[in-house]
Design a protein around this nucleic acid. Structure first.
Length: 473
RNA sequence: GGAGAGAUGGCCGAGUGGUCGAAGGCGCUCCCCUGCUAAGGGAGUAAGGGGCUGAUACCCCCUUCGAGGGUUCGAAUCCCUCUCUCUCCGCCA
């Protein structure tokens, strides 16, 4: 039976990036959403973001790995909880068995026309004890879930240990920062020409962290989107997707925005609430939620252009000038769903796909491996692509490419059927920006600026701009 | 917004209180037959969790028929609440 999901696939994660180290996490049990999800996880998938079996068998290794990201896993606490859980669960199941057996016997006795009253009172007594045991077990399991939910994805061995972006490891550079024989301006100054970028208008219409673009600049923005989508669909084998920009809570949970990072999201007022997507990763990766995908359909490579909405809570005062950090921006996203053994290769490929965009645009960039302190909560490894910004004289993130292994798949129930075992198993998810449109735009403006304030158009983009070599009007 | 119907395994679809984890079909796996192909015959085939174990092998057990709660000795089946889907009407594109 054909899956409604088209064959294709890559993924990324700016959102999941919201960090393990950066933000103080509130304890899960302090939030009702976390509790609700804990039950959800138990009932729906019976697991959490980490493989519970692996935790039981090899908790020391996991503790050491997440310890590298500054996360202290309380091994003793876990063992205590687990021991109690095992006893309680065994007892509960014993009582359930007892009840089932005796109820069955009542049915048989009744069929024979015997007196069933004494049997009934017996089962009633068992049911009473069972109810208590079940309630206690529920409470305990919720507690364990809360404990597990707070554990980040153990970083891959390759990931350098570090505190913040200072400790990220440069992998490679491409291109040379342009040498200007004049003082380069930033995109805010350059964008003021012809009202190409109007931040004041945006404040009147919406507020801070928005932009209004007009004329050739608006067209350039649109051209970039077409350009990127064409590359990924025609050359890299991705299927173009159009997806909802508002998602339900289950999807926000699936990719990890909820429950921990709710304050990063915009939410609608109605009931049920919708969440404005902070990245296309959310609707696209969730296409696989609660599904079993046939092996022949993997790898699934999907690309989507979407707006992204972020509250940017906690980044007050950061990057307030210009359009580097906005509440609304656009992105062409790459998402891949792959068989587990393929995911590390897929991460290299996916990162390469994003790099092609940079190279075609002639934008100097470097690739860094995020250190443990900068790594997003759900990612096992992330490459950031950073573009050179003459206005800031430094490299800034323009794409973030991550392998989540089975971390996301586990919590959203995204599986594939392993031909070897014939069993459904969790698949691996990846995603990456290919690339952020707004940031690509301002990178072009700054890197292609002329002494007189004119902006040249990268050659590869000219066909998308009616053949023009400079932004006009 | 008004009225009605429905939600069952990878998919379709039976099933109105016990022997139903669930008929049948499709799909899939293995075997047989057929000189390729097509067709045919047989067997098997839900997921999650726990226990046991060197074991992701057997075996035993528990849970799950949209979600949650209730009635009952016993619930896919009865009751309540919620969510979603479909059809018709209205409304708006």
């Amino acid at each position: 039976m054909p899956s409604p999901i088209p064959p294709c696939g890559i993924a990324r994660s700016a959102s999941s990036r919201s960090s393990a180290a950066g933000r103080p996490h509130s304890a899960p049990w302090e939030r009702t959403e976390a509790r609700a999800f804990a039950f959800f996880a138990i009932r729906k998938h019976g697991n959490t973001m980490l493989d519970p079996k692996r935790l039981r068998n090899d908790i020391e290794t996991i503790a050491a790995a997440v310890g590298r990201r500054g996360f202290e896993l309380d091994v003793e606490q876990f063992r205590r909880l687990e021991e109690r859980r095992r006893d309680l669960q065994t007892e509960t199941q014993r009582l359930q068995h007892e009840r089932n057996e005796r109820s069955k016997r009542i049915g048989e006795a009744k069929a024979r026309g015997e007196d069933i009253e004494p049997l009934k009172s017996e089962v009633t007594e068992i049911a009473g004890r069972l109810k208590e045991a079940e309630a206690e077990l529920d409470t305990l399991q919720a507690e364990i879930e809360e404990f597990l939910m707070g554990i980040p994805n153990p970083p891959h061995d390759d990931v350098p240990t570090g505190d913040d972006e200072e400790d990220n490891e440069e992998v490679r550079r491409w291109g040379e920062p342009p040498a200007f024989d004049f003082e380069p301006r930033d995109h805010v100054d350059l964008g003021a020409r012809h009202d190409w970028m109007d931040f004041e208008a945006a404040v009147r219409v919406a507020g801070a962290r928005f932009v209004v673009m007009s004329g050739a600049m608006a067209r350039l923005h649109r051209a970039l989107i077409q350009f990127m989508l064409d590359i990924h669909t025609r050359e890299h084998g991705y299927r173009e997707m159009y997806v909802p920009f508002l998602v339900n809570a289950a999807s926000a949970r699936g990719t990890g925005q909820l429950p921990k990072f709710e304050e990063d999201l915009f939410v609608t007022a109605g009931d049920p609430a919708y969440y404005l997507i902070p990245t296309a990763e959310v609707p696209v990766t969730n296409l696989a939620r609660d599904r079993i995908i046939e092996a022949g359909q993997l790898p699934m490579r999907m690309t989507a252009h979407t707006p992204c909405f972020r509250s940017e809570a906690g980044s007050y005062g950061k990057d307030t000038r210009g359009m580097l950090r906005q509440h609304q921006f656009e992105k062409v996203e790459l998402v891949q769903l792959v068989a587990p053994e393929r995911s590390w290769d897929a991460l290299e490929e996916l990162t390469g796909h994003a790099e092609v965009v940079m190279q075609r645009l002639g934008l100097p960039y470097r690739v860094v491996t995020l250190c443990t302190g900068d790594l997003g909560f759900s990612a096992a490894k992330t490459y950031d692509i950073e573009v050179w910004l003459p206005g800031q004289q430094r490299y800034r993130e323009i794409s973030s490419c991550s392998n989540f292994l089975d971390f996301q798949a586990r919590r959203m129930g995204a599986r594939w059927r392993n031909p070897q075992t014939r069993k459904p198993e969790y698949l691996h998810t990846l995603n990456g920006s290919g690339v952020a449109v707004g940031r690509a735009l301002l990178a072009i403006v700054e890197n292609y600026q002329q002494a007189d304030g004119a902006i040249a158009i990268p050659e590869a983009l000219q066909p998308y701009m009616g053949g023009a070599e400079f932004l006009e009007e």
